[in-house]
Amino acid sequence: MKMNGNEIRQGNIIKHQDSLWIAVKCNAVKPGKGGAFNQVELKNILDGRKLNERFRAAETVEKVRLDQKPHTYLFAEDDMLVFMNSENYEQIRLQSEFVGDSAAYLTDSMEVEVEFYEDRPISIALPATVVLEVAETEPVVKGQTAANSFKPAILSNGVRTAVPPFVGEGERLIINTEDGSYVKRAD
């Protein structure tokens, strides 16, 4: 699907210079002299390179459509993570570095979305939040309130985060998988 250069938005995936790029930042610029353009910071999906490009309204780029398929996380084997397609039960193995830091939030039987381009996995999307237990934190001090102060904690998956002072060890919390931040206590 073709689109004009000024229509590129953050999160769009485009084909540019014979590779796949995701728009990380977009800034519409209207200088006093000359025509307007879209200043776009691109990140190569396949190898991680970054590129800054100017796209004018008259230029066209190809917007890429990715196939999203539901998968279930099964287990880790050495440095590979095994997922099963929820529709046809085929298994795929992905390098743990492909998933990145988000791999720490994977739990058995977790439902994820794997994006494919021409039957090649491009990215993986975890649920927005997960429930984890606090493995280690400073003890609760009587009289502390939920003011804008936080204390360090280590979660059951080994990830460090900041939690409110009233949270103690063994409590179950809802954690944001994107940045590892505390959301709220789990019910």
Rank of each mutant, 00 (worst) to 15 (best):
N44A: 01
I175Q: 09
I92C: 14
A76M: 10
D47T: 00
E53G: 03
M3E: 02
P165G: 00
L74R: 14
K69I: 01
I175H: 08
F150E: 08
K25S: 09
K50A: 00
T161N: 15
P121D: 08
A186S: 08
N148C: 05
A76T: 13
K151A: 10
N38T: 15
D18Y: 11
V130W: 04
D119Y: 02
E97G: 05
K184E: 15
E169N: 11
E169S: 09
V64L: 14
N148K: 10
I92L: 15
P31E: 04
P164Q: 10
E53M: 04
E115D: 09
T137R: 07
T60G: 09
K151V: 12
E111H: 14
A128Q: 14
G48Q: 11
I122C: 01
V131T: 12
N27T: 05
N52H: 02
V131D: 02
P165T: 08
A186H: 04
P139N: 09
P127C: 05
R49E: 08
K151G: 12
V140H: 02
N44I: 00
E90S: 13
E118D: 14
T177N: 10
A36L: 10
L51V: 09
I13Q: 05
G143K: 12
N27S: 09
D101V: 04
P152N: 06
V131Q: 11
E178V: 08
E118H: 10
K63W: 11
A186W: 04
Q144Y: 14
V159E: 07
K25A: 08
H16I: 01
Q144K: 15
T177G: 03
T60H: 11
M84N: 12
R65Y: 05
Y182P: 00
A104D: 07
E169I: 07
R9Q: 15
L20N: 02
K33H: 14
K30Y: 03
G32Q: 00
D67E: 09
N6W: 08
K43H: 01
L74D: 10
W21L: 14
M1S: 09
Y117R: 07
T145K: 06
K30W: 03
M80Y: 14
H16F: 13
C26G: 05
I175D: 09
N148D: 06
S181Y: 02
G34K: 12
A135L: 08
L126T: 06
S19K: 10
Y73D: 01
L173R: 12
G180T: 06
E118T: 06
V183I: 15
V167S: 02
G35N: 13
R120L: 06
D78S: 04
Q91G: 07
A147Y: 13
S19W: 04
D18N: 15
D78W: 01
I45Y: 06
I174T: 08
S156Q: 12
R160T: 14
V61C: 11
V24M: 10
A36S: 12
F116A: 08
T107S: 08
V159A: 03
S102M: 13
K151Y: 11
R65M: 06
F83H: 01
H16N: 06
N6D: 14
F166T: 14
R54L: 10
S96Y: 01
S156I: 06
R120I: 07
N176R: 10
V114R: 02
L46C: 03
A125Y: 07
K2I: 13
E7A: 04
